[in-house]
Every structure is written in structure tokens, then in C-alpha cells.
Nucleic acid binder design. Structure first.
Lengths: 230, 230
DNA sequence: CGGCCCCTTGATTATATTCAACCCTTGTGG
DNA sequence: CCACAAGGGTTGAATATAATCAAGGGGCCG
């Protein structure tokens, strides 16, 4: 299963790396300021020795953790500016996988001591990511399935969303770059429950499902009430 | 409800603050390097303007978030060295309440720019707290009630626990400074379910319940298997 | 056109919640 | 010193919610 994902790395964006090489190694070798990678590429493996810390410049990445029996949790969804590749001790605590084509920069961990500007930037970003995780703990611990999915959709399309951006196709719809299974792993549900929640939100007229991966929020107020906007 | 908690502040440790004053104000005024506070004292309120950032020197603190309808989630349990009082924008994202008598230092947020050593310390600590939150997301999203409680108990009594410390009464037992409701709010369960899980762990011989708030782990291996030790 | 992957929906079952009663400990006041 | 009240904890029975098991329906690519 681990191999199956890695197989996709070299091919998913058209350029081939050394066969069998992990993307982590490719990044390790390149001194490039920003490494471009395709979608569905595994960047890090939970448990691997943690030599570097990563900044996402562009794109979307998910961080995942596994239980020994295979249950998976997507612990964080990252966007531009977010940081990953954290370690407690000397191993990565999460796997990292791109959702869409992305640009990533990697820093040697030692650079944190020397580069004050980098450290300051990471500090600010860590604070922001901690806040997001706090909110997510509330979602996972205390919200119903419908509430979780509403929360997820609002998160994809923040309030002050300017129309006409590249990822927003004209109207107010969003492309969801995750499968139902990935959404379920993010929200602590099963894929069937996520699917039912989408249908229920549609039935209630809160969202429109243009396609399975194209959603439009019809009634933001009700969605926010569901998601418990504080 | 908010008042009910604050009522306890002035009295819980014998010394009285100014009547009606919040502990946050007491901390604000004192230039003391370490402010001593009693147990069950509210240090911060979610939503209040975030002027300072706090370090826990000694004791135990829990961070909580509320939904509009009153559902509560304990998002983090803090020990010595941990940092709290985070903000996204200009408001605290969590309330903070002591579980036991504690010592806290508060820093003006501006100090982060000036004090490089402080920033470096917080950066390291943020990384550690992010890792803990990642692990907790896995617990909240993917573990059964029994597994969650096992995880909680292991967390209270880490592996390399040296005997004879102040908080370990001779044998390998731990005092739990939280009610069943607080544990439930931490694990995303109800207090009844937590109680049943304790009973089940006892029935299986994995733990001994000396008292409701005094637990001893009898079979660490089985507990770790339950909690999915990676 | 066919196969594959993902998504949706239905029926059944498992798990945790809710509602309710009772118990134990602790602290207080007669 | 005992009785009692209050707060937390435990346990049982009924219920709700999401998981599981199972079948069928697109859309997309070869």
C-alpha cells in the first residue's frame, strides 16, 4: 500500500525522477529554493528520520497519521505558507502528501538556529497552525457528521473569497481536491457518512453539488450556524 | 456558568484576590517573573483580546473551546514548559484553566520580536505541542472509547516514570486531577462512557482503581497495544 | 466500448449517548 | 460524633448516531 502511492510520484507530473527514489530524496539533493511536485505525491513518511523542515509555497498538502491496524487520520490540511515536517525526537510525526501540484522549500533543521528571519516566520506560522488544530479538535470531539461536513466546506471557501481567482470557476463554487475517503479521514468519519452528509446538505438547500468534486454554498448563514461559527 | 467558575478563583487556594477580579487581570498587573495561582482558576477566556502569551512554569493547565450551544472540548493539556494564550487575529482562541496549583509567566506579545531567546524557546515548544495535537487528532478521529481512555492514562504516566517523585505516591499510581466530565471533554466522549471505560479496563486487569482519582497501570503492554503505540 | 474508480444509497448492526437511579466520599453543622 | 447534604462517580435500560455490509450508478480513460 505504501508502495502503491510512491509508484505514482515519478509519473504524476510528467517528469520522471530516478526510478524508485522517494520525493524526499529528490528534495534532499536539490539546493533549489522551490521544488515543484505533482499532485498525490508522498513528500514524507511518518517515522522516517527528520532531517529537514518544509514550507509549502504553493498548492495543497495533507498530513496523515496511521494506527497499526491501518486506520488513518488526516491531521492537517495545509495551504501556501504552512509548515510541515515536524518531529518529536528525531522522526517525522506525520506523513505528508500533496493534494494538488505544489511548490515546497526544505530547510535543514540546523538553519533554524542561524536564520532568525526563518525562525520568526515559522513561529508565526506555528501559532496559526496551532489555532487551526485547536479548532479541529473541537470538530473531531464534539460535532455531528453534518456539522463536520459543513465546517469542512466553509473552510474550503472562506468568507472573504474574492471571485475570479484561478481556483474559483467564475461562480462561487469550489473544486474539492480530495476523495470522499480523504475527507472522511480528515473529519473522523467514514466515506459513506460523508457522502450522506453532502446529500443531506443538498436536500436542505444549503449547498449545490455541481459535480461530486464541485460544490457551491447556497446558504452561508445556515452553514455557519451548523458549523458553530463562534 | 462562567461566573460559577470564577467564583472559585479567589478561594480555592486560601489567598483572596480582589473580589470579582479575574485572574488574568492579576497577572496583567504583576511584573512578577512567575505568578503563582491556585487550582481551578480561569486564566484566560476564549475571545478576549490577546495581549500576552503565557508560559506554564509549574503545574497543569487545560485549554478549552466552547460551541455556542455549550458543548465543550478540552483541546490541550499542558504541563511545565508549555505555552498558551495563542491568538488568530487579536483574540484568544481558547480559554485556559488550571487543574492544579501552578506557576505562570506572561510575556507581552511584542517581546517576541525583541527577545530572540524567548522566540527560540517558544518555537521549540510550539513544535512539540503541534506534534501532541497531531496525535490527539488521531485519538479523537479514529479511536474507540476504550482506546481513548487507555491513551489518556498512558499519557498521564509516561514510560520512563521515575518512582518516588512528589506526584507519585510510592507505588506506580497517578493522581488524576480531572473529573470524569473533564476527561470526557478531552477525549470527545460523555462522562458515562469514560466511567464505563475505566470499569472495563479494571475488569480486564489492565489498571487498578485505588480511588476514582487514583489509578495504577497493571499491564502496560496491553495498554499500549490498545492505545496504538506507533 | 469496456473497465476502473469513485460516489451514492439502502438495510442492518455496533457503538456511544441519553435518561435515570443509586452509591460513595467528603465536608459541614447540629 | 453522627447525620446529612452536595458533588462526583457508577451502573442499567432505552435510544440515537454513525459504522458496516452490500448493491448499483456515473464519469473518465484506455
Amino acid at each position: 500500500m505504501r508502495q502503491a502511492i510512491e509508484d505514482r510520484i515519478g509519473t504524476s507530473h510528467g517528469r520522471s525522477h530516478a526510478p524508485g527514489a522517494e520525493l524526499g530524496h529528490a528534495l534532499l539533493d536539490g539546493p533549489a529554493p522551490g521544488q515543484r511536485v505533482g499532485g498525490h505525491a508522498v513528500l514524507l513518511h511518518e517515522g522516517d528520520p527528520a532531517r529537514r523542515i518544509m514550507e509549502l509555497v504553493e498548492g495543497a498538502v495533507m498530513l496523515t497519521k496511521l494506527l497499526p491496524d491501518g486506520r488513518r487520520q488526516v491531521v492537517e490540511l495545509l495551504g501556501p505558507g504552512d509548515v510541515f515536517g515536524l518531529a518529536c525526537g528525531d522522526a517525522y510525526v506525520c506523513s505528508a502528501e500533496t493534494l494538488t501540484a505544489s511548490v515546497v522549500v526544505a530547510h535543514e533543521r540546523g538553519a533554524l538556529e542561524r536564520d532568525g528571519a526563518l525562525a520568526a516566520r515559522l513561529l508565526r506560522r506555528f501559532e496559526s497552525q496551532l489555532c487551526t488544530l485547536h479548532a479541529h479538535a473541537l470538530v473531531l470531539g464534539r460535532m455531528s457528521a453534518l456539522e463536520r461536513v459543513a465546517f469542512f466546506l466553509l473552510r474550503l471557501m472562506p468568507e472573504g473569497r474574492q471571485p475570479g481567482r484561478g481556483d474559483a470557476p467564475l461562480d462561487g463554487s469550489v473544486h474539492i481536491a480530495m476523495t470522499r475517503q480523504e475527507i472522511a479521514d480528515f473529519l473522523g468519519l467514514t466515506l459513506e457518512t460523508v457522502s450522506r452528509a453532502f446529500s443531506e446538505l443538498k436536500r436542505r438547500g444549503l449547498v449545490a453539488l455541481l459535480r461530486a468534486d464541485e460544490v457551491r454554498i447556497r446558504d452561508r448563514g445556515s452553514m455557519e450556524r451548523l458549523a458553530g461559527a463562534a
